[in-house]
């Protein structure tokens, strides 16, 4: 092989490698995008049944129920239009409280309940996740707290 052809081959291999890596990265990007839906979106059937997404809203007062034997917990999430039942097994964050805005990651089960893999509530008592704040704004005036 002449040096010139060797150089061309090297560059060709590099480009092929880059293309492959870019393809894989884009695919990973696609698969790991998580969309946000509110309880109203879920009631309207907008949320995908077969992939993870995020849900956000206020935890309904008095709706938190714990299993006495395990770490399983269920609670209702509302955007003051609709409610979604959320199931979670694990340790809730320090700032999880009834009446507090939270965001959860997970997916819908066959019964239309949200199975959360992770529950987030952040940083201070006045904080509201921006997605939750935006979806609460859509609620008709008068039903907001």
């Amino acid at each position: 092989m002449t040096p010139r052809r060797r150089r061309m081959l090297t560059i060709g291999l590099l480009i092929a490698g880059m293309a492959l890596a870019t393809g894989l990265i884009l695919q990973a990007f696609e698969q790991n995008l998580m969309y946000f839906y509110s309880p109203a979106d879920i009631a309207a059937g907008k949320a995908p049944p077969d992939r993870d997404f995020r849900i956000g809203g206020m935890v309904v007062e008095g709706s938190v129920q714990r299993d006495p034997q395990s770490l399983a917990v269920t609670f209702e999430l509302t955007d003051y239009q609709h409610q979604t039942t959320v199931q979670y097994t694990g340790i809730l964050p320090d700032l999880f409280r009834e009446g507090q805005g939270i965001v959860a990651h997970g997916r819908l089960d066959a019964a239309g309940q949200f199975k959360a893999r992770e529950v987030l509530a952040k940083h201070d008592e006045n904080y509201m996740p921006p997605e939750v704040a935006a979806s609460l704004k859509k609620a008709p005036p008068g039903v907001r707290p």
Binding site: L24, I25, F29, N32, L33, M34, Y35, F36
Partner: peptide, 15 residues
Amino acid sequence: KISVGPPYFNLAFGL
């Protein structure tokens, strides 16, 4: 409103 999960970063960065 979307978010990008850690698996994306782990894979892309690892690659």
